[in-house]
Simulated scan of single mutants.
Amino acid sequence: MKKHIVNPWKWQDQLGYAQGVEVRNNQGTLYCAGQAAMTADGQPSEGNMAQQIELSLQNVEKVVKQAGYHLSNIVRLNIYTTSIDEFFPAYGTLAGWMAQHNILPSSTLVEVSALAYPQLKIEFEATVVD
């Protein structure tokens, strides 16, 4: 698989994402459902934004690894949050996770009025290639 990052500007570099990610010659693609801060027994987290980001990312990891893919091959990571104002102060949790796993995805951040459960604040939707 060949991955090519497309960044016509530099401003997004400090935020840890790419404007575009081109993938050629890949073997497979994994489209992950939105992963929120849900416990292993299917209960929504009551935690703050940073705690919910951490649990949501752990859930992304479980899906990606169980499917046999590598986290570094996440090429798209869409973010749905009920509060952008709460999200950005906790952004370091996400940025650290992406840096740790060498992830530089294309990404979209959207504020939504609600997620599946009223307690949920964040949900990640990942696309992974092999």
Rank of each mutant, 00 (worst) to 15 (best):
Y80F: 12
M98W: 02
N25I: 01
P89W: 14
L15A: 05
S45C: 09
T29Y: 13
G96M: 14
T82G: 05
S56A: 15
G42Y: 14
Q27E: 15
Q66S: 15
T29F: 08
N78Y: 14
Q19V: 00
G16M: 08
Q43W: 14
P105Y: 04
Q52L: 05
A50V: 06
P89T: 06
G34P: 07
M49V: 03
M38G: 03
E22A: 00
T81L: 09
I74F: 10
T81N: 09
H70F: 10
L71I: 04
S83M: 11
T81E: 11
Y17D: 03
Q35V: 00
N73S: 13
L104H: 03
Q27D: 13
H70M: 11
Q58S: 10
E46L: 06
P89Y: 14
G28R: 14
Q12W: 09
E46I: 02
G47L: 10
C32R: 03
Q43T: 07
Q35T: 05
L57G: 04
Q27N: 09
A37G: 03
Q51T: 02
L15S: 01
T39V: 00
N102V: 01
A33Y: 12
G92Y: 14
T29L: 12
G68M: 09
V63N: 09
Q35E: 13
Y91H: 06
H101F: 08
A40W: 15
R24G: 00
A40I: 03
I53Q: 07
L55P: 04
A99I: 06
N25V: 00
F88K: 02
Q100K: 12
G42A: 06
L77V: 04
S106M: 14
Q14D: 09
A50I: 10
I84E: 15
D13T: 00
F88R: 03
D13K: 02
Y17A: 02
S56D: 11
I103L: 07
L15F: 11
P44L: 07
Y31A: 00
K62L: 11
V63Y: 12
S83A: 12
E46P: 01
G28V: 00
R76A: 08
